[in-house]
Computed example of a mutant assay.
Amino acid sequence: MIRVQYVYDLVGLILVLSSLYTFRDRANPRRITTGLFYALYGLAFILADVLPSFVLGLVVIAIVVLAGFGGVRTGSYGEAEAADREASRARLGNRLFIPAVLIPVLTVAGVEGLSRIHVGALPLLDPANVTLVALGIAAAIALIVAWAITRSTPVVSVREARRLIEAIGWAAVLPQMLAVLGT
Rank of each mutant, 00 (worst) to 15 (best):
M1K: 11
I2G: 05
I2E: 02
R3C: 02
R3H: 12
V4T: 08
Q5F: 04
Q5H: 10
V11I: 15
V11N: 14
G12H: 06
I14W: 07
I14G: 13
L17A: 15
S18Q: 05
L20H: 01
L20N: 03
Y21C: 06
Y21A: 02
T22G: 00
T22A: 03
F23G: 00
F23K: 01
D25K: 02
D25L: 00
R31N: 07
I32F: 09
T34S: 14
L36K: 04
Y38N: 03
L40A: 04
G42M: 03
G42R: 02
G42P: 12
A44N: 11
F45V: 01
F45H: 15
I46W: 08
I46R: 07
L47W: 08
L47M: 09
L47G: 08
A48N: 14
D49I: 03
D49R: 12
V50K: 09
V50C: 03
S53D: 13
S53L: 07
F54G: 05
F54N: 06
V55L: 13
V55H: 07
V55Y: 11
G57K: 02
V59R: 01
V59Q: 06
V59C: 04
I61Q: 03
V65S: 00
V65L: 05
L66S: 01
A67H: 00
F69M: 01
G70Q: 00
G70S: 04
G70K: 00
G71M: 02
G75W: 03
S76H: 15
S76L: 04
E79H: 14
A80Y: 13
A82T: 13
A87T: 10
A87F: 08
R89C: 05
R89N: 12
A90C: 06
R91T: 09
L92H: 06
G93D: 14
N94R: 13
N94K: 13
N94V: 11
R95K: 13
R95V: 00
L96Y: 11
I98Q: 08
A100M: 12
L102W: 11
L102F: 11
I103N: 15
P104M: 04
T107R: 07
V108E: 08
V108K: 08
A109E: 06
A109R: 07
G110T: 03
G110D: 10
E112G: 10
G113R: 06
R116S: 13
I117P: 12
V119N: 07
G120S: 05
G120P: 09
G120Y: 06
L122Q: 15
P123Y: 02
P127W: 05
A128S: 14
N129R: 14
V130S: 14
V130F: 15
T131K: 13
T131G: 15
T131L: 08
L132M: 14
V133S: 10
V133H: 09
G136Q: 04
I137W: 07
I137M: 10
A139N: 12
I141A: 15
I149W: 11
R151Y: 09
S152I: 05
P154D: 08
P154I: 03
S157W: 07
E160G: 11
E160N: 14
R162C: 06
R163C: 07
L164R: 10
I165N: 06
A167H: 11
A167E: 09
I168Y: 14
G169V: 03
G169R: 04
V173T: 08
P175K: 01
Q176Y: 09
M177H: 10
M177W: 05
A179I: 02
G182T: 03
T183M: 07
T183R: 11
T183H: 08
